[in-house]
Design a protein around this nucleic acid. Structure first.
Lengths: 198, 198
DNA sequence: TTTATTCGCTAACATTCGTTAGTATATTAT
DNA sequence: ATAATATACTAACGAATGTTAGCGAATAAA
């Protein structure tokens, strides 16, 4: 009956959350069972409920943890006094950074949010819609001042966000180039597709 | 005890397959139950088994149906005597076309293949790896003859494929631009990111 | 040291799952 | 009309699921 081991600065709940992120990412939320999660934590399934309220709560916390970070970044970028194209590249770099350094949570947030229960589900969807609108607004501003090609902004946002989601494949790839090179390549290709062919 | 209604040129199994695609897309493979599927077909769950072998078989057929179409297209494109950049745009257009016109199956193939059981799983993963390799080879050829920017080809493939997967969001969007415009926008952005800034 | 609290355990629960067996009805072939 | 086949039904199965109750051990507070 050994207790869950914890480092300082991380509660038992946080340990469970991080194991849950890894498991949900690997198996998918529905396929991941509390008994699997318990095993990966090193404990019996029932014991988890001394720390968490439900399986869904884990998903809530993971999804909103990620969503909040992205919203905060968007606040910063909007407030910054830099050209639109730099704002976009800044956001792209942030997405890539998050995808690389908080891989499991970001992936889960991206692919498993549909299993959230209302009212969290609607809430999450609204946040996501809002984020994309704000992203598109930056692109549209760039189009108006001719620093970005005249394209359909929502489509561009869609492409950018999903393209970055593709790092998932990179992350599991065996022969991966280093993270900086990856970032540079992505910014080149994605940014290059936006700039006008002068 | 009314039988499943079928149009000519489509067997009962094909009807079940198409309903399964829609259901797996909406709920995810694990969350979609045979009882849900039965309901959407208009029949009791057990009755499905007069037409199919198992739930997993449905996933097999959906995934490999899609995968085979893409492989065949790749054969054609490789054999065509056109510039590399056109090959790539051709593939991009094909991906977009498939995503728009066979939305449910392509989406399921893209996101739910991990629930395939071996040996289908390994088989599918191999095909996928192979497809990307061939795609990357075209890009590398384009780089060698200077018609494409010197970028990391596998990264570019990753971006292209996932970007197109983003049409999923477009498909469910309320205010969607028309399909041709979407295609043109995507080709502009993605193709533009590859061409050298002359 | 005693007391209170945190936490992990076993056992069990009600559901839901994919699937099978067995039977009855509808359609097709003879 | 009769026989054969295809297909839908009800009922039930064993397994797996998320979760709760209740008990004892470990830790922290007094």
């Amino acid at each position: 009956m050994a207790r869950i081991k914890i480092d300082k600065n991380s509660s038992r709940k946080e340990l469970i959350l991080s194991k849950a992120a890894a498991l949900f990412r690997e198996k998918g939320f529905k396929a991941a069972s509390m008994r699997h999660l318990a095993e990966s934590v090193g404990v019996e399934a029932a014991s988890l409920y001394n720390h968490i309220k439900s399986k869904t709560e884990l998903l809530h916390e993971l999804c909103f943890g990620v969503a909040n970070r992205f919203m905060q970044k968007m606040d910063e970028v909007e407030a910054a006094k830099i050209p639109d194209i730099e704002k976009i590249e800044d956001l792209i770099r942030f997405h890539i950074y998050e995808m690389i350094h908080h891989y499991e949570e970001v992936y889960v947030c991206d692919r498993e949010w549909k299993y959230l229960a209302d009212p969290y589900l609607s809430n999450f969807q609204n946040q996501r819609r809002m984020y994309r609108k704000r992203f598109a607004a930056i692109i549209e501003s760039g189009i108006r001042n001719k620093s970005i090609k005249p394209i359909d902004a929502p489509t561009a946002v869609l492409i950018l966000l999903h393209a970055i989601g593709g790092i998932e494949s990179w992350h599991r790839s065996t022969q991966k180039i280093d993270a900086d090179a990856l970032t540079q390549n992505m910014v080149t290709i994605l940014g290059g597709g936006l700039k006008p062919t002068s």
